Simulated assay, not measured.
Amino acid sequence: MKITFKIWRQKNSDSKGTLKTYDVDGLTEDMSFLEALDHLNEQLVLKNEEVIAYEYDCREGICGQCGVFINGRAHGPHDHMTTCQLHMRSFKDGDTIVVEPWRAKSFPIIKDLIVDRSAFDRIIEEGAYISSKTGTAPESNAIPIPKAKADKAMDAAACIGCGACVATCKNSSAALFTSAKINHLNSLPQGKAEEHERVEAMTWQMKEEGFGSCTFTGACEVECPEAISITNIAEMNARKLKAKLLG
C-alpha cells in the first residue's frame, strides 16, 4: 500500500509552517494511522532527516493526546473515533492524506503536529474536582444516586480532553469541554456543595484563556470522539445564570 502524505511541518510557535509531501510505501491496511506515521519516521531516520513530531500515549482512544486534522476533519473520516483508533483500511492505495495540527489561538503549535493544550489544564484547575475532605473512598453504595443522574454524569465524564471540539468550532470555543467537566461533578451529590463556585470559576478561566463563544452550530458534538452532547453547554449556561442570581 502506497500513500502520499502531506504533513504540516513547523519548527516552533514562532516560525512559519508548511505542508511537506512524503511518498510512503510498504504500508498495510491493518496498520493503525499512528503506525503509518511511525513507519514514515523510520524512513526519515534512515535518510538522516528530522522526524515528524506528533503526540500520543495510550493508543486506545482514552488519553486524548493524538488529535490531528486528517483531510480536513478532526481525527479522520469516521464518527466517534480518535486518531489512534483509525486504521489504514479506511484509505485506498494511492490516496493523498493531508495531516495538520489543531488550529486555535489557545492551542499554540509546539512543533509540527503537537499543540499546547495546557489551557484545558488551567480550566480544570479552577474547579473540576471536589475539594471537601472525605477521608478514604466511601463504599460505592453509601450514597444512593438515581440511575438517570449517574448515567448523565458518566456521559459527561467520558470527555477525554482531546480538543477536537475547539479545533472544529468556527469560534474555537471550549464550551463543550468545559461544560462536560462541570456537569460531570455538578450532577452528583458529592459535587453539589461547590456547584455555583465551580461553574463561575471554570467559565471565567475559559474566557481568560481566549477561547471563543459558543454559537450552538453543533459541530463540536459531531466531531467529538466520545459524542458528548451539546445539551451539556445549555445546562452549563443555565447553571451559570443560576449561580449569578443566587450570588
Rank of each mutant, 00 (worst) to 15 (best):
S13N: 12
L19P: 02
K20Y: 09
T21E: 15
D23Y: 02
M31P: 00
S32D: 10
S32R: 14
L34Y: 03
E35W: 04
A36P: 02
A36W: 09
L37A: 00
L40Y: 08
N41V: 10
N41C: 09
L44N: 05
L44Y: 08
L44V: 00
L44W: 01
L46I: 07
L46Q: 14
L46F: 11
L46E: 15
K47I: 00
K47Y: 06
K47G: 06
N48Y: 10
E49V: 01
E50D: 13
E50K: 14
E50F: 00
V51H: 03
A53E: 13
A53P: 03
Y54K: 00
Y54W: 09
D57K: 11
D57T: 07
R59C: 07
E60M: 08
E60V: 09
E60Q: 13
I62C: 11
I62P: 05
C63T: 08
G64M: 00
G64Q: 01
G64V: 00
C66D: 15
C66H: 03
C66M: 02
V68F: 10
F69Q: 10
F69S: 05
I70N: 05
I70F: 07
N71R: 01
G72S: 12
H75N: 15
H78E: 15
D79Q: 13
M81D: 02
C84F: 08
Q85A: 07
L86Y: 00
L86G: 01
R89L: 09
S90Q: 13
S90I: 03
K92E: 12
D93G: 07
G94R: 07
G94Y: 01
I97V: 15
V98Y: 03
E100H: 06
P101C: 04
W102M: 15
R103E: 14
R103S: 13
A104Q: 03
F107R: 02
P108D: 13
P108H: 11
I110Y: 00
K111R: 15
K111P: 05
D112S: 05
D112K: 09
I114S: 01
V115W: 06
D116E: 13
R117Q: 05
S118R: 13
S118N: 11
A119K: 05
A119N: 03
F120E: 03
F120W: 07
F120L: 15
D121W: 11
R122V: 01
R122S: 12
I124W: 05
E125M: 12
E125N: 11
